[in-house]
Simulated assay, not measured.
Amino acid sequence: MDKLIIYDFRIDAWTPETLPMSRLAEYLARLSTLFGSKEHVHFMKVRKGSAVPEIAVDPTANPKVVARLKLVGTPDAPEEVSRAQQDINHMLRDDGATAYLRIKGGAKILEFSGAKTPLAEEVVLFEQGELEGMVIRIGGKDETVPVMLEGEDGTYYRCNTKRETAKQLAPYLFGQRVRIHGRGKWRRTQERAWELDNFDIKSFEPLDEAPLVDVIETLRRIEGSEWNEMDNPQEELKKLRGD
C-alpha cells in the first residue's frame, strides 16, 4: 500500500493542551473544504509544540488535492474554497494566531495571516449598478447560475443570474464584451479597499466595440446629422459614451 501524504497545519498561538476540541473541529471543518476529496482526507493527530494538526491524504487523491489548494486565493477558486479561507483567517484573528499549511517536512503551501491582518471595521454595502467586461465562465445546475466576468483591467467579478439570462449570455462567452446591470454586494477589505463580493445580474447588453473613428464616420453619413458641424466630434462622442 502506498504511503499517505501528510500535511501540517501549524497554528502558532495554541498547543495541544490549550486548543479546545470544539475549536479544533471548526478549523478541521474549514480545512476539509479547502482540501476537497473528503473521503480520501483524514485527520491523524495534533502534534506537540504549537498545535499542529496532521492531515493525511490518500496518494491516489493527492494530485486533485494539490490542484485544489493551488486555487486558494485566486479568482478561479470555487466559492466554498474562498469562503473557507476567509473563515480560517477570521478564526485565527479571533484567536490571536497565524498559521500555515505545508507537506510535512516540506515548504509552505499556504499562509494565513490571521492576527497579523490589518484591522478595519468591516462594512458591507448593497448597491444597484453596472459592470463591463468579458464573460469567461458560465456554469452550475441550480436556478441561480454562477457567471464570471473579467474586467478590462484584469479584475474578476463573481456574478449570479437566472437561467434564462445565463442562456442569453452564453453566446458572448470569450467573445464580445458586455455591460451587465443589477445589484452588487460590496465589502470593505482589511486594507480599507472596496471589493465586489457578488453581483446579481438582472439584464445586460453587448458593447459596441467599433473604433471611435468608424462610429463618427457612420454618424456623419446620416442625412441631417450635425456631427459634420462639430469642431471636436470625437470628444463629444466620448462624453455621450461616458468615457
Rank of each mutant, 00 (worst) to 15 (best):
M1P: 09
K3D: 13
L4H: 07
I5D: 08
I5H: 11
I6A: 10
I6F: 04
D8V: 02
F9D: 06
F9Q: 02
W14Q: 15
W14P: 13
W14Y: 11
P16W: 05
L19Q: 09
S22D: 14
S22M: 10
L24Q: 08
L28Y: 04
R30K: 09
R30W: 01
T33E: 15
T33H: 11
G36T: 08
K38C: 06
E39I: 03
H40A: 14
H42A: 09
F43N: 13
M44D: 15
K45H: 11
K45Y: 10
K45N: 14
S50M: 11
A51D: 12
I55C: 03
V57Y: 09
N62V: 02
K64V: 01
A67G: 07
L69C: 06
L71P: 03
P75V: 06
P75G: 10
A77F: 01
P78Q: 09
V81Y: 10
S82P: 01
S82K: 09
R83W: 04
Q86Y: 05
D87S: 13
I88L: 10
M91T: 02
R93C: 00
G96Y: 07
T98P: 00
T98V: 05
Y100G: 08
L101R: 02
I103P: 06
I103F: 02
E111W: 05
E111Q: 15
E111H: 14
F112V: 05
S113H: 14
G114I: 09
K116L: 11
K116T: 15
E121I: 04
E122C: 04
V124M: 13
L125Q: 12
E127Y: 06
E130V: 07
E130A: 15
E132C: 04
M134E: 15
V135Y: 10
R137I: 01
R137L: 07
R137A: 15
I138M: 05
I138E: 11
D142P: 01
D142K: 12
D142S: 14
T144H: 13
T144G: 09
V145Y: 00
P146L: 09
P146C: 07
P146A: 07
M148A: 14
Y157F: 12
C159P: 02
N160G: 06
T161R: 06
K162I: 07
E164R: 09
T165P: 01
Q168F: 00
Y172M: 08
Y172R: 08
L173N: 03
R179E: 04
R179H: 05
I180H: 07
I180N: 04
G182E: 11
K185V: 06
W186D: 03
E191D: 14
R192Q: 11
E195R: 15
E195A: 10
L196F: 03
D200K: 11
D200L: 10
S203M: 09
F204R: 09
E205L: 03
E205A: 10
A210R: 15
L212E: 14
V215W: 00
I216D: 03
E217W: 00
T218A: 11
L219R: 06
R220Q: 13
R221L: 08
I222W: 04
G224F: 00
S225W: 02
S225A: 04
W227T: 00
M230F: 07
D231E: 15
D231H: 12
E236A: 13
L237D: 02
L240W: 05
R241Y: 01
R241I: 00
G242M: 07
G242A: 08
D243V: 08
